[in-house]
Write a protein that binds this DNA or RNA. Structure first.
Length: 283
DNA sequence: CGGCAAACCTGCGAGC
DNA sequence: TGCTCGCAGGTTTGCC
């Protein structure tokens, strides 16, 4: 899926289309996503005005004029696209359409249906089961080396695994954890609790830099992600390690020239997921 | 609590 | 051509 930068890119793309608009029609073609879409979702949204479009972790948050908030997760393969009137005929994975009073449609497409949609009272938002317990926003002012070190303190699990735990820091996924660890020069296999002090500062700064650079590039387009306007993100061209097993490490160029056989990007499975790293540069 | 595998679902590319 | 296998940006659940 979309990790934080992709969700943020989608949010920014949807803002000019949805913010301040009234929903004149909401079509749900199938309700069985990761969890069922709430009953009467369409009826409850129809006629409502969207007063704001936010994001928490990998969730899009649509604030409605009746005090309700839609929590929308894109799962692994979810996409939002914008269509002028009339929208094209729906495909088999086009599950939800939001039709606004301008005639434009925002369409949710999700082949794997790992995405989810829920509706909650804005006053209860922070206590929603999906949001309660999430760690700090890595781009917010509550996140720094000290906060990260505190969240990792005592953890025996590998650093990579800990950073994928949304309770430690919210919004990172497999790509950006790999990239952040590379940039910070930290091994994915290091015990999480050993990251303190300057190492923690370095890691927090790396996370922020990778996420900001990715957002500036419109996210990463591997299989499914597109910006809401249909354009591809292009941060995947800037990956240092993700998906680059066997290639030379961009941080060890000189090593390749000297014939160091250790140099290069390696893939290893960690917690059932691919980890890409350079064992020379990351300790 | 920690760690890990499996589960949810579809699509795609590689290899035979 | 057609099949099987492994893999994919996430998150939860259940088991030891």
């Amino acid at each position: 899926m979309p990790e934080l930068p992709e969700v943020e890119t989608v949010r920014r793309g949807l803002c000019p289309v949805l913010e301040g608009r009234t929903l004149v029609q909401v079509v749900t073609r199938r309700l069985d996503l990761r969890w069922p879409i709430p009953a009467n979702f369409g009826e409850r949204l129809t006629g409502r005005r969207i007063i704001g479009l936010g994001r928490r972790s990998k969730y899009l948050l649509l604030s409605l004029d009746d005090g309700m908030v839609v929590l929308w997760h894109l799962g692994m393969s979810g996409r939002m696209t914008i269509h002028d009137e009339p929208p094209p005929p729906p495909g088999p994975h086009d599950h939800v359409d939001l039709v606004t009073d301008t005639g434009r449609t925002v369409r949710f497409t999700d082949p794997r249906r790992f995405g989810s949609i829920d509706l909650t009272d804005a006053l209860l938002l922070e206590n929603h089961p999906r949001l309660a317990g999430l760690g700090p926003e890595p781009l917010g002012n509550q996140f720094d080396g000290a906060a990260l070190a505190a969240a990792l303190a005592g953890r025996q699990s590998p650093l990579k695994t800990a950073l994928l735990d949304q309770r430690v820091v919210a919004g990172l996924g497999n790509i950006y954890v790999c990239e952040s660890l590379f940039l910070a020069g930290l091994s994915p296999f290091r015990r999480a609790g050993t990251v303190v002090g300057r190492r923690a500062e370095r890691l927090a700064a790396a996370i922020r830099q990778v996420l900001n650079d990715a957002i500036a590039a419109g996210g990463s387009s591997l299989r499914d992600h597109r910006q809401a306007n249909g354009e591809l993100g292009y941060f995947q061209h800037h990956f240092a390690v993700y998906g680059r097993a066997g290639e030379a490490c961009p941080g060890c160029n000189c090593a390749a020239a000297t014939g160091d056989r250790q140099a290069g990007i390696t893939r290893r499975v960690q917690g059932g997921r691919s980890t890409f790293f350079c064992s020379r540069r990351q300790r």
